[in-house]
């Protein structure tokens, strides 16, 4: 990966343009070698090693016991609550974000709204992790400003209603802070792709707004909506920092369980830890395959 190697690889591949009759392929491939070596070393192989480890005993023998142990109730519960939080924050973020993006793109608002929303979304979608947890503690924690305002101005004791920031609902609410703007960022270009003429053509042929969305708008947007929601799901599913900073290890979600396992082998089985990671890959991987399949169906009509 040193610059020297790079220079070498590029120099050797410089010949083809001046000698076009030469088969360019083997040389051309050298240009992308650093990238694939990097991807193999720091993305593919480490992940693959975990997958292999999931099927091994501590002595390196093949076993399915680790996978079987994943069905332990506490592990299943961790996966389940992770899936619930991710799905809730993804769907919530997708729905709210889609409306917000639509309001800015096609809602007939003043022109300055859109760039402002995009800038703020760029900031908010990147304002995740530990600081976000602090912000929500300051807002909706027991001494948070909104908790205080609700109690003093409206006489509502938030925590007496059973609300807890360190819970499923609280974490979902926190995740929405970056999920909604992320959706706005992803969906806005897709909304721009909805051509004004489609709306007008449907109008002049007598279609109502509902019929337009039912038959044209949503079918056209569907792949983008689906893809964005899935990305939001994966985004929440893999999140560690926000949840850890917010709840410590009091909330049993799978990333925090895995974090604890990596730090201190709380499962007392290194290979069960690998299986835990494999389970996470399978879930995000499966949702991606589902997405690709659904998109294939939804996009029959396009290239």
């Amino acid at each position: 990966m040193t610059p020297g190697e790079r220079r070498l690889s590029l120099d050797t591949s410089a010949a083809p343009p001046s000698r076009p009759s030469l088969p360019a392929l083997p040389w051309a491939w050298i240009g992308v070698t650093p990238f694939f070596v990097f991807a193999a070393l720091f993305l593919v192989l480490p992940t693959a090693l975990l997958v292999v480890g999931a099927f091994q005993t501590a002595d390196g023998e093949f076993t399915l016991a680790n996978l079987r142990d994943l069905t332990h109730p506490s592990i299943v519960a961790a996966y389940w609550i992770s899936i619930q939080i991710s799905a809730a924050s993804a769907i919530g973020g997708a729905v709210i974000g889609a409306f917000l993006a639509y309001a800015a793109v096609g809602g007939g608002l003043p022109a300055w709204i859109r760039p402002t929303l995009m800038t703020f979304s760029g900031v908010a979608s990147n304002f995740a992790g530990v600081p976000l947890a602090f912000a929500f503690l300051a807002t909706l924690g027991r001494t948070g400003l909104v908790t205080w305002a609700l109690a003093n101005w409206f006489g509502v004791n938030l925590y007496a209603t059973g609300f807890n920031l360190l819970s499923f609902f609280g974490l979902t609410l926190t995740y929405l802070y970056f999920q909604i703007p992320l959706m706005v960022l992803i969906l806005t270009p897709a909304l721009d792709g909805l051509r004004k003429e489609w709306r007008e053509a449907s109008q002049i042929l007598g279609a109502s707004t509902f019929q337009y969305w039912r038959w044209i708008g949503l079918p056209v947007l569907w792949p983008s909506l689906l893809g964005a929601t899935l990305l939001l799901f994966a985004n929440a599913f893999g999140a560690v920092a926000t949840a850890y900073a917010l709840t410590g290890s009091s909330l049993n979600i799978v990333t925090i369980l895995l974090y604890a396992q990596i730090r201190g082998d709380v499962l007392h089985n290194q290979n069960l830890g690998y299986a835990l990671a494999l389970g996470m890959i399978l879930i995000t991987g499966f949702s991606n395959v589902a997405y690709i399949w659904l998109r294939g169906r939804a996009e029959r009509w396009s290239r």
Partner: peptide, 20 residues
């Protein structure tokens, strides 16, 4: 390949590093 990091959770990748 460039989109894989959006699919594989960061904690899994770093777990892999620790093993590899």
């Amino acid at each position: 390949v460039t989109l894989l990091p959006l699919v594989i959770p960061a904690i899994v990748i770093v777990f892999g590093y620790l093993r590899m």
